[in-house]
Amino acid sequence: MQLSHLHITHFKRLAELSLSFMAEDNRPRPITLILGDNGSGKTTLLQAIALVLGLATRKLNAPGDLRWPGFLPERMSTRGATRIELGVVFDTAELETTRDLYTHWAQRARPELANSIAAPSALPRVTLAYQDGALSCAEGPQAMSQFLGRYFIKYLIRTDPALRRRFLDLGDVFWFDQNRNLASMEDLRAFLVSWWSYHVSPRRPDGIDFLGQLEGHLVKVFPGARFVGTQPMSFEGTAEPTSYVLLERDGLTYDIAEMSSGEQAVLPILYEFVRQSVARSVVLLDELELHLHPPEQQALLAALRKIGPDCQFFVTTHSPYLESVTPPEEEVRLEGGQRCL
């Protein structure tokens, strides 16, 4: 799924905003760089998209589920009644996969659950609107079900793990706030330890080498970086056995907790792309340049198209190193805010 346009009325400090994300060939643009001074509403714009698509895909059950620093759901309409409208474009393969998954899901779900979701339609363009605290689709409830492909997989995967591969056929929304959503380094560590053991396993049962994929992405931004293994930590003071996850770069070997700020800003993004098989999705990235040297900023920008096939990226930035290499038709400059130098 990709966005064709957006209209916002009274969402946080944004009073009125209308943007088109269509390129000259009448297809959604793969990357939009959102520029503007501090306080112009760049992050707010990303939050608006995350909120509406998050609700549509059932990633969020209510606005209060959106955990994003600076987003207070009870204050989003303090300047007037909020309305957010998104134009969403689907491709044929995505629509077919969603309908196919729905059929399987409807057979396995509890009847009351199955009856609560209409069979998805196959409309290439849908208009989604959030207004008065509710989400609706101008084309009806069947069009709303077009957003649920990944929701169906998450249900079915419990009994059919092979369906995981079909995540790559379906869109969703993913966002990375200024903290890169990294709730806990220990969660990341636990995943990486498990991925490493599969990665080095002499016999690999049918599965996915997540660590190999992650390393492939990592090297695109940090040339020469690689995972070199795990090493048990001391058991003193810990209830659970745990391990260091060791990286090697520029001749140094270090644990993921010892990564540079730049690596800490990028690894969680790459990790989520691999863990969640992100493809064909709307991806929101707040301040891409965070903690990164200028060459690493350009490296990450170049890597986005490779790590997220057919994704549509919305990137906020203050970086002249990103702005200068982006064609003007791929930039949106928001007015207002505090003038920078």
């Binding site: 695109k220 931004v221 350009q298 490296a299 990450l300 170049a302 890597a303 290499v325 064609p327």
Partner: peptide, 16 residues
């Protein structure tokens, strides 16, 4: 920025 945008993609930040 046609040269800039193409070379940034071709070189991927190495060099800036």
């Amino acid at each position: 920025p046609i040269d800039l945008s193409i070379l940034q993609a071709l070189l991927g930040g190495r060099p800036l």
